[in-house]
Design a protein around this nucleic acid. Structure first.
Lengths: 278, 278
DNA sequence: AGAGAAAAACTCAGGTTGAGAATAACGAGG
DNA sequence: CCTCGTTATTCTCAACCTGAGTTTTTCTCT
């Protein structure tokens, strides 16, 4: 299509490519790491009867192999650049992220996966230069994970047990620079809830406004005024659309049955739903 | 620090590392590409006298080597994973981005550099699997570029000559998937102007409110109400701070001299400065 | 039927926004 | 010096949005 722009030099591109040796470059590895976030009832809090509103959890694995054996880490693995003995190449980075995650837990049909960023500082992995493409995955209440190859243990860990970001509340410290990656993911999720309809990714296909508010409350870690939230959601075009149905049952204590909504078409919220500054 | 967590297995980590062969992995290359954005007077528009408000430009280079020889592309290059004959290793990805860019143009002391994302679909480069970490750089009025190795030509190209994103306004089509990367960068810049104080990255250390408004207008491609913009900027805590000085001269036609401001400490704008929906 | 609970609707004061008008400060030309 | 065109800055006001609290509706349980 742009043949006319090619300069009239000697060597055609096809001949150049056949003489190319990919191994001439310094070795560098590309991995994917996945910050899988879901909202599930806090483990251990065995309240019976009372409403379980759920808290955000992240999927962590304990490394069974060197380096950093025994430490908690994000699920991840090497990207398959070409077809090889381990299996076919990953067509793109999201495919690689879903592949490494599917070794740890069963993936739902509806999920949100986005790239967070790439971490490639020298020395972050002692083996060699490793460039790690971090992803963030959001999904409704995922089941308990199973261990995989190279993994001793895998578990959903509540955010409250981690020292993510501000303050030096030590928490579990993660292998490599995974603590930083996790902190970046949490901040990204919190921020995207303001400007996008991302919160619905934590919920099943039909949900109530209250459930949506509880997602915001869980991720932001603060309570919201229920009536104002309700008004705002319904006033934001394309955020949710009415299914016409009602929720099954309001729990043990009775109460009006909530209307069920599904995610609307809008990806961006106009105007945004800001965390108030107070 | 987490010695107590290390499982009591046989092999110590140090011995594991000494037997590690980095070349055992399939070859994959990591490159950086830079979307360098600046605001400069539209070339060719030789209006004398009238105010030149400037339009956004991106730095493009024409490839002198295979593959895709002769096509326009973003400036970029391979990341130096380890020390080698070409020079020392890049300590981190931003260093690599600045290095490849400095081969094309003189870098200012004040600039904003952030990572956009990594593009790694199979087949995007015919030589081998290439993972390209794209960066976005914003800087005030950069000088004309100079050609470098592997580059036939380098130029600041106005956005108006490119078919970035919506519509099929063909424009110059770029090598590899650089058209998509550029479109992503433009959308990122537009969006970040709403929620962050990023617009000041396009301006010198002291600037007027009008100059700041012209940045918004240039990037968003729409005019803004000057009085309301002024009120909003001054009402947003930490966006700008008064220098106490006045601008030199209002141009040819006279007019009140504008007050000069510098960038304030705030990175995020609360509340944001939204593109209105009309 | 009545109490309690949860959802949804209503009220209202205060703040923010969009649009336009008014005022202030400047250069140029009579 | 005085006036005009120009640009910056401030003012006004109606419409809208937001936070906080109250009321109404519709459930379950007793």
């Amino acid at each position: 299509m742009t043949e006319d722009r090619t300069p009239q030099h000697d060597e055609p591109e096809s001949r150049f490519l056949s003489g190319y040796d990919p191994h001439a470059f310094a070795p560098a590895a590309v991995t994917v790491d996945v910050v899988a976030l879901t909202i599930r009832p806090e483990a251990g809090t065995g309240e019976t009867g009372a409403r379980r509103t759920g808290t955000p959890h992240v999927l962590l694995t304990r490394r069974a192999a060197h380096p950093q054996r025994g430490r908690w880490a994000l699920p991840g693995g090497f990207v398959r650049a070409e077809d090889g003995p381990d299996g076919p190449a990953d067509p793109d980075l999201p495919d690689a992220a879903l592949r490494v995650l599917s070794e740890k837990t069963r993936l739902p049909t509806e999920l949100h996966l986005e790239q967070l960023g790439t971490y490639g500082a020298r020395g972050r992995d002692p083996r060699m230069r490793v460039f790690s493409v971090a992803h963030m995955l959001l999904a409704p209440d995922l089941p308990d994970p199973h261990s995989g190859r190279d993994t001793e243990e895998a578990a959903w860990v509540p955010w409250s047990e981690l020292g993510h970001g501000e303050g030096s509340r030590a928490g579990r410290d993660l292998a490599f620079d995974h603590g930083r990656i996790l902190a970046d993911a949490v901040e990204r999720a919190r921020s995207k809830l303001e400007y996008t309809a991302l919160a619905t990714a934590f919920l099943p296909s039909a949900f109530t406004i209250t459930a949506l508010r509880e997602v915001y409350q869980a991720v932001w870690g603060r309570t919201l005024h229920a009536a104002n939230f309700h008004r705002k959601i319904l006033a934001t075009p394309g955020f949710v659309e009415d299914t016409g149905e009602l929720a099954e049952h309001g729990g043990s204590g009775g109460g009006r049955r909530a209307r069920l909504y599904r995610a609307g078409g809008a990806a961006l919220l106009h105007p945004p739903l800001l965390r108030s500054t107070q």
